[in-house]
Design a protein around this nucleic acid. Structure first.
Length: 417
DNA sequence: TGACCTTTGAAGAGA
DNA sequence: TCTCTTCAAAGGTCA
């Protein structure tokens, strides 16, 4: 059987120079993508088979049937995107075949299946049996929606998870559950690094005296019969009472601890200010915004509705700045910024309403982002610029009917024969 | 997975 | 100077 650590790396993209590692921002994007992909379980619900590496397989790895590369030059950005997707799918397909081959080989090595699947006699034998395993005629199948990469039901073949197919998680690296805290793959290490970097970005406030007191007494309280099953909030209530009942002298050590903590914090982060932690994330800002009553802070039109103008303040009735919202400095600043943004844009794209009527609208007209535009275009049928359209067009090797031939040009040499 | 609950004290912002 | 708001920790609950 294959040794531990043996692996097949057919399409794993390696950075030639590790020092030329992607930036943290890129890492974050990658990690988000990886987490999304890894969150999708292996389709047949089983654990993926550990594909062995053998000289026989090595001979198989290179001349896989679909291995085309062609230059995206001359394509529109969206067509290039489609091209990338297509090439990625091609890589996945190749990996599926490689995995199937590995499974055929591994099954042959297994004492259980040896009688059913004898050793491949040659690379050609292995290849033909691999293709047979992938054939739709191979009986009921499981995994990968019954398509390419699925395996005959009841067979020892296990499809790889999407991440494994892509080379993430490592065919030889992340297949078995890790028993240590150490990241099992370079990607896991990268993910951990990203999380740690995120952690480092946030410098927490030093604890105050009461928090030092809580630290010390929470566990004591939790050991008390009466409080051991209570929730944290209840414990905090009780701790608050006890803190309140304590004499100043009893509190003194905690204030000293807090003072020391504050001093150390100031030494460690001389330029830090508590302000830095004020709603520095959108979620916290959202949370903060929710602390106001529903409708509070809204202008009269939004608060009472157009039909209840009798409830509006006199300013709103006269289309002036709402009395309820007050139109604080922050609002005015935002409005100024909004107007600047609007004026910097062409007047045709987004003209922020400047009259009081529009000013009363809750949601200003927003400019769709590039991503939103892309999505919209993807959802628009027959748009020649959408990735899916471009992909289909590429695969069909013929220009869309409504595209002029000179726009499309001759790209027949870009496609596999 | 992250908000919420609950406490006190420190810090910052704004009036 | 005063008032108001936010955040620091904990861990169960809930969406």
């Amino acid at each position: 059987m294959a040794e531990e650590g043996d692996e097949i790396k057919v399409f794993r993209v390696q950075h030639e120079d590790e020092s030329d590692a992607p930036s943290l921002a890129d890492d974050k994007k990658d990690v988000a993508l990886e987490e999304e992909m890894e969150s999708k379980p292996c389709i047949d619900g089983g654990s993926a088979f550990h594909a062995p590496s053998t000289p026989l397989l090595s001979s198989m790895a290179s001349p896989l049937p679909f291995n085309f590369n062609f230059s995206p030059a001359g394509f529109t950005p969206f067509q290039q995107l489609a091209l990338q997707n297509w090439q990625m799918n091609q890589a996945v397909t190749n990996q599926v075949i490689a995995n199937a081959a590995a499974n055929v080989y591994a099954a042959a090595l297994s004492p259980v299946f040896a009688s059913l699947a004898p050793m491949p006699a040659s690379p050609l034998d292995l290849f033909s049996r691999t293709m047979a395993a992938l054939s739709p005629l191979a009986g009921p199948r499981v995994g990968m929606m019954g398509g390419m990469g699925s395996v005959p039901l009841g067979s020892p073949f296990r499809p790889f998870t999407p991440m494994q197919l892509m080379g993430y998680g490592g065919v030889g690296g992340g297949m078995t559950p890790s028993t240590s805290n150490a990241p099992s793959t370079p990607n896991a290490a990268r993910r951990k690094r990203v999380k740690e970097e995120d952690k480092e970005e946030h410098i927490k406030k030093p604890k105050n005296a009461y928090f030092w007191f809580m630290d010390e007494n929470r566990k004591v309280l939790m050991n008390e019969e009466e409080w051991k099953d209570k929730q944290s909030a209840d414990l905090n209530k009780e701790l608050g009472k006890r803190w309140h009942d304590m004499k100043d002298e009893e509190k003194k050590p905690y204030f000293e601890m807090a003072a020391k903590d504050k001093e150390d914090h100031a030494k460690k982060y001389p330029n830090w200010s508590a302000r830095e932690n004020y709603a520095n994330s959108a979620k916290k800002k959202k949370k903060r915004d929710r602390t106001t009553e529903p409708g509070e802070g809204k202008k009269c039109r939004a608060r009472f509705g157009v039909d209840s103008q009798e409830k509006w303040c006199k300013h709103c009735i006269r289309k002036k700045k709402c009395l309820y919202t007050g139109g604080g400095e922050e609002d005015e600043k935002e409005e100024r910024e909004e107007e600047e943004r609007a004026s910097s844009h062409s007047h045709s794209t987004h003209q922020r309403a400047t009259d009081s009527e529009s000013d009363l609208d809750d949601e200003p007209t927003t400019i769709p982002s590039d991503e939103e535009l892309k999505l919209t275009m993807e959802l628009t049928p027959l748009n020649p610029l959408t990735p899916s359209f471009a992909l289909n067009s590429l695969l069909l090797r013929s220009p869309p009917k409504h595209l002029r031939s000179e726009e499309w040009g001759d790209r027949s040499d870009s496609f596999p024969s």
